[in-house]
Design a protein around this nucleic acid. Sequence first.
RNA 1: CGGGAAGUAGCGCAGCUUGGUUAGCGCGCCUGGUUUGGGACCAGGAGGCCGCGGGUUCGAAUCCCGCCUUCCCGACCA
Length: 469
Amino acid sequence: MASQSVLTPQSEDFPRWYQDVVAKAEMADNGPVRGTMVIRPYGYAIWERMQSEMDARIKSTGAKNAYFPLFIPESYLSKEAEHVAGFSPELAVVTHAGGEKLAEPVVVRPTSETVVGEFMAKWIQSYRDLPLLLNQWANVVRWELRPRLFLRSSEFLWQEGHTAHATNEDASAYAQRIHLEVYNDFLVNVLAAPTYLGIKPPSERFAGAINSMTCEGMMRDGKALQMATTHELGQNFAKAFDIYYQSEDGQAELCHTTSWGASTRLVGGLIMTHGDDAGLLVPPRLAPVQVVVVTVRDEPEVNEAADRVAKSLLDAGVRVEVDRGRASFGRRITDWEIKGVPLRVEVGPRDLAQGIVTVVRRDNGEKSTHGLEELVGVVPTMLEAFQRDLFASAQDYLVANTHDVTSVTEAIDAAKDGFARLDWDLVAGEGESELNAQAVSVRCLQRRDGSMPVSDEEGDLVCLVAKSY
RNA sequence: CGGGAAGUAGCGCAGCUUGGUUAGCGCGCCUGGUUUGGGACCAGGAGGCCGCGGGUUCGAAUCCCGCCUUCCCGACCA
């Protein structure tokens, strides 16, 4: 661990710590237009790893990737009343193009339910065309009043899935599958981020949805972050866009649609779920660099040994990088710690003389030495142990900072530095306004056993409340 | 969008109250050398529309007005 912090300590000023990490780990910069973000190579590499892990899971549910346009006719948004009401405040609208005023203004997509709906209506003829399972990786624009890198930028990158089904049961089952097998599986097993799985209360639902599911994570300051959401849209968009199919008995029937998304906000979630005062901590299964091989001295034998070590790890399928930079040893390892690379292999003349290298874990600073030839064998094991420990420690934090309470007043108090859990019946209605007045919101509803309800009308539910990003 | 704070070199800051030659400091950067097992050191050097625009003045980083941007706290949202 760094003896002297180069970052603002979390306990001193958490928002500043976050910005320090984003800047010093070379993740992103502010763009020239307020709220826009330049994602730097290291930040983008992490996003690309997220993309590839989620994309594989999305495809295994049967969805196929496609691409819809950035520009949407303004009239499309208006077709679904709640949807337009929800989004109009944050729309960016193009009124001029080609040197002339446009006859109909064009909005920059804040999300694509409307265009996709229009084309679903065109492509779906019969029940044989269903389910129609689409996904796209794209940028979207939602004009933000209070932007923060990764967490809330006016333009961000995401994946948005859009599906159409013959029945509500099928739509609902598929949405659950996405939520559990894509999002939660990714968050838990790759991002090592424990979540509260639940449904949003009606007040927090996506504009136009009949049900919204969430994977709610807890950040190191006790605030909540919605890491991914899945929406059941019922027949709202099908009605608005005439998405009909002909059933087996020849009747025209309205489809049931879903939509679901996860964004570059996850990078912010990653930072705040695992980061410590020395910087970022990236779980090995996600890390674009899992092992950094650092030379202790700039000497030919050391450099050659470092290259050999890296080559052998690379051949074993480990994502590895060699650092034989000219900066001092201390400086270089501090920089890699800020970037959160899980394992550091130190190659120096003293160790080499004994035929060994030193391996250091980023999370606890634990050092161990290994023979050059046995390293390839132990590294994958150490990476898996690191992955498990990281999840376990985040899980402990989540549990330790979730307090069971029996009143809204207690919940507000508990939400100062964590989550509160209480009966939904105690909150629904007036309680929710009381919470909101204190900047606390209902993050999700769960059954008593922690599982995800099908609907908020189930009864006997509990809710998790917290301050949130 | 409301309340607060702030914009001076890549980053962090001083200078502004009380206007007055060439605007400073630390880190970083460049060159050379010595170093290298936890943010190395010495010497030399480069780098500034003092956020932008206007005003006051003989003279503005400094005073006044407007705008932009950043940060914090809210409201709105992934």
